[in-house]
Simulated scan of single mutants.
Amino acid sequence: MNLFKIFELTQLHPRTSERDIIDLCQEAVALEAHSVCINSSYVALAKQLLEGSDVKLVSTVGFPFGTTDTLTKIHEAKTAIENGADEIDMVINLGLFKSKNYVSVLRDVTDVKLAIGSIPLKVIIEISELNKNEVLKACQICLDAKVDYIKTSTGFSKGGATLTVVKILKKSVKNRIKICAFDGIYDEETASKYLDIGVDRIGINSDFKASEVAA
Rank of each mutant, 00 (worst) to 15 (best):
N2Q: 15
L3S: 07
K5A: 15
I6S: 09
L9N: 04
T10I: 07
Q11N: 07
Q11T: 14
P14Q: 15
P14L: 10
R15L: 06
T16M: 05
S17G: 11
D20W: 02
D23G: 10
D23Y: 08
V29N: 07
L31H: 11
L31C: 06
A33R: 01
H34Q: 06
S35P: 02
C37Y: 00
Y42P: 04
Y42L: 07
A44W: 03
A44D: 07
L45V: 13
L45P: 04
E51W: 10
G52S: 14
V55S: 00
V55R: 00
L57G: 04
T60D: 09
V61L: 07
V61P: 01
G62A: 13
G62V: 12
F65R: 04
D69G: 14
D69I: 14
D69C: 08
T70W: 05
T72I: 13
E76F: 10
A77T: 11
K78C: 06
G84C: 12
I88E: 00
I92H: 01
K98D: 15
S99L: 11
N101F: 08
Y102L: 12
S104E: 12
S104Y: 13
V105E: 00
D108M: 10
D108N: 15
V109T: 06
V109A: 01
T110H: 15
T110R: 13
T110G: 10
T110Q: 08
D111C: 09
K113T: 05
G117A: 05
V123A: 03
V123S: 01
I124F: 02
I125A: 07
I125L: 13
I125T: 06
I127M: 08
N133W: 09
N133D: 09
E134M: 11
V135K: 01
V135D: 03
Q140S: 11
C142T: 02
D144T: 12
A145C: 11
D148R: 08
Y149K: 05
T152L: 11
T152A: 09
S153L: 06
G155R: 03
F156N: 04
K158Y: 15
G160W: 01
G160M: 02
A161Y: 04
L163D: 07
V166N: 02
K167D: 05
K170A: 03
K171V: 15
S172V: 08
K178F: 04
C180Q: 06
D183M: 01
D183S: 05
Y186E: 05
Y186G: 09
E188T: 13
E189R: 13
T190D: 04
T190M: 05
S192M: 10
I197Y: 13
G198N: 05
D200L: 08
D200V: 14
G203Y: 03
I204V: 15
S206A: 15
S206F: 14
D207S: 13
D207F: 12
F208Y: 11
K209A: 14
K209P: 05
S211F: 06
S211E: 12
S211I: 12
S211N: 14
V213A: 08
A214C: 14
A215I: 11
